[in-house]
Design a protein around this nucleic acid. Structure first.
Lengths: 344, 344
DNA sequence: ATATTATGCGTATACGTATACCCTATGGCG
DNA sequence: CGCCATAGGGTATACGTATACGCATAATAT
């Protein structure tokens, strides 16, 4: 009889070859200190030789820990798909790397905001915790978060840090970023600064950016004009429409702060069509620093978020949460990238 | 005593409530036909009520099927990160969706090409199969693929379909795409067409595109000039350098076919700096249709790959492979997107 | 009416690991 | 020289599901 050479080795095989019991193998490989250094070394050597790897399923079943994190990415029903990328992918990269570094696997899932993901994912034993990423209808989102909290599910989410306190949040310092934008525009002499972006409570991050802008203006002794704010979601078309509405309203303005680069790019098109010169007549600042921002003409001044830091921090916070270690909200600074659209 | 309300229900709980045995619950939920319709309906109702979900770990352990696919994405050591995105993310989206539709989870992992991923992933019981994505040193890649084949690991990869036959490949019709580009350039009267992209066997996809270009030229009675080919990897800088080298060589040319949009964008910069007018002096075509392609000036004619179809097809092929169903290589058509850079 | 087969389900057990508990040697201590 | 702590590791079992069998009952065939 004997083992088939093709059969995957188990901890019993290692145990047999090492002349110890199976539990000792388990202990040795997991670093328990109740196994002698010599025995451990021997076991590790044999495991290496046999190309043995711990069976994740068995391990998870027994220990009730999966060593896997789930990443749920939400998209709107009609996503301008190609455009979420820049924001999302570098974060995905750093999340993945951080998971790998900690010995965790990453399960990924795209979700429609209206799905019952909070039900599906609650108990499937697939992951030790969840990272929530993406935008959408914020109110709808909140009720589901509450559900997660009730179920005792461990999760972190990316978003606006301050406003509600449901769950654990990691996010950029949107208010600070807005202040930077405002200060820069004021510095180059602008006083009538428009804001393009949803300022309702459906989009707290945009709201924070607007708040920051207003704060910087007031700090410079300029009172923001509410008539210069236009709602817009993060897409080129929406930015175009918002800018167009602003122009047609006859309002006087000499700068635009767009809540995202996509909005900014759409707005630039509308402004150019209206014969306005950028940045002489209207300076403009975006948000995100997507690759396209350096390809527009004029190139776009924008705020860059620390996506890599974000990924690391999200994983870090989630793991702390899982281990019931204390962990507080974390805010990441954004950086102003000056380009031609504000170069006067 | 009794169950804690917070404890996750098991198949035994369902069985108890339904007045049947645990295996019957398992059978009912998995659609075995040896359980009556009435019993099954009752069990499903109870499972629903209790918010029961099958424990993946236990299920996988017992059945030796994980219902999970792994996506390994390879990156070069020094990736121009933000730029892989457009290519990658829409595919990721469709892969994820297709997995969800089939009831599979998706495990994701970024790998350095030089890692021993082929060893790590062979036996970990984490997934039923692997999707390989990304570029890099192709020769190095091949030896690892052979290793996978030896181990009996199920996998598919994205890439150049024709050339070697190691494993199962899904890819775009690069030759056909090259032909489309060539035919279009010939049609607008160009005869001296340069190709920017690695034409060595390290990058079979680029090579295929070049072959297609040559084929189209010859079909039109034009002999391609090897002196007009310049190596380049997929980055803006590399494209810039390649174009610069071409210009400085003093070669005469009236069109450029770049193996990727990034190369094209870099090349456009070099061409503009050399005072060449686009497209009058030099027409240019890229590859991938990244978002930035419609933001350059002039906007960039390019070839769009069917990324969504690709994701679907990859998952489809892998699942067939896993089930030992017959499956052949599949080629996806690319589409020429005409923009200003070839509008004469 | 008896033999045969299918239907519907229960019984027993295996998947591979981790952990609670127990046991045995050794050495330090008085 | 007896007592106890400790190191090192064995024994037994649980994690929750899926499947090989077996066994009734009912539905057919003969």
């Amino acid at each position: 009889m004997g083992r088939q050479p093709s059969a995957k080795p188990t901890s019993f095989d290692i145990a047999y070859l090492a002349g110890v019991s199976q539990p000792t193998v388990s202990r040795a490989l997991r670093g328990s200190k109740s196994v002698s250094a010599a025995t451990r070394a021997n076991i590790q050597r044999i495991a290496q030789e046999l190309n043995y790897t711990v069976d994740k399923n068995a391990s998870s079943l027994r220990s009730q820990r999966t060593h896997t994190l789930a990443l749920l990415f939400f998209e709107d029903p009609n996503p301008d798909e190609s455009m979420i990328n820049p924001f999302f992918l570098s974060m995905l990269g750093s999340i993945t790397r951080e998971c790998a570094r900690r010995g965790y696997d990453l399960l990924i899932s795209f979700q429609q905001m209206h799905n019952d993901w909070h039900v599906t994912y609650q108990d499937s034993h697939r992951s030790d915790g969840i990272i929530l990423l993406g935008y959408g209808d914020y109110q709808l989102y909140l009720t589901k978060l509450e559900h997660l909290v009730e179920m005792g599910t461990k999760f972190v989410r990316w978003g606006s840090v301050s406003e509600d306190g449901i769950g654990l949040t990691v996010g950029s310092d949107n208010v600070g970023a807005g202040e930077q934008a405002g200060a820069h525009l004021v510095e180059i002499g602008r006083r009538r600064i428009a804001f393009l972006g949803d300022a309702s409570d459906h989009a707290p991050e945009f709201q924070d950016r607007y708040d920051g802008l207003c704060r910087a203006m007031r700090a410079a002794g300029v009172e923001p004009d509410p008539a210069l704010q236009r709602d817009a979601v993060s897409s080129e078309d929406s930015g175009y429409a918002a800018a167009k509405s602003l122009i047609e309203s006859g309002q006087n303005f000499d700068a635009v702060f767009a809540a995202s680069d996509l909005i900014a790019i759409g707005a630039m098109r509308a402004l150019a069509e209206a014969g306005l010169r950028l940045p002489q007549d209207v300076a403009i600042i975006g948000f995100d620093d997507i690759p396209a921002a350096s390809l527009t003409s004029p190139t776009l001044t924008t705020l860059m978020q620390d996506m890599k830091g974000a990924g690391t921090l999200l994983v870090d916070a989630l793991l702390a949460r899982i281990d019931d270690r204390p962990v507080e909200q974390r805010i990441l600074p954004a950086r102003l990238i000056k380009r031609q659209s504000t170069a006067v």
